[in-house]
Amino acid sequence: MLNAILSISLLALAFGLLLGYSAIRFRVEGDPLVERIDAILPQTQCGQCGFPGCRPYAEAIAADSAEINRCPPGGETAMLALADLLGRDPVPLDGEAAEEAEPVLAVIAEQECIGCTLCIQACPVDAILGAAKQMHTVIASECTGCGLCLPPCPVECIRLEPLKVDTGSWRWPFPTTPHDQMKAG
């Protein structure tokens, strides 16, 4: 009886140790750098960096084939965080990213909106509210100002307006990355 319990326990223990050891010994490394870069990027998947999403951009940065300044939604915060992570020099934001460096917000001129829903489909963060043949509007707190809703609009009623800082919208400058803010919010 004791014999049986002991031997099966020992057998199980030995197998457990074997598996535990081999899990460490034969671990397959993913690329941890890509994960960390991806964590800094804002995950809007807007494609303004020229890559099909945040992760491909992160992979390109990790492979040293892309600059760190191509992310407009992340803005300067993300660029500085990337520079810090990768030990590269901070570079000014590139192209489109530079123009929209200041925080902007998409605004729909509601009297002109025809309710075509095209901008809703384009929005990567689901910040536009509306239905077919109903007036659409932008949920200001969700909008990242990526500007992807502008091209599909057939009547050009969407504008990007600089975010006016007033007592209602001013925030303490948190020392966090955009990704952290998204996770918290």
Partner: peptide
């Protein structure tokens, strides 16, 4: 089976 899977994944 587990062990084989791990070794195979690596090698």
């Amino acid at each position: 089976v587990q062990f084989t899977e791990m070794v195979m994944h690596k090698t």
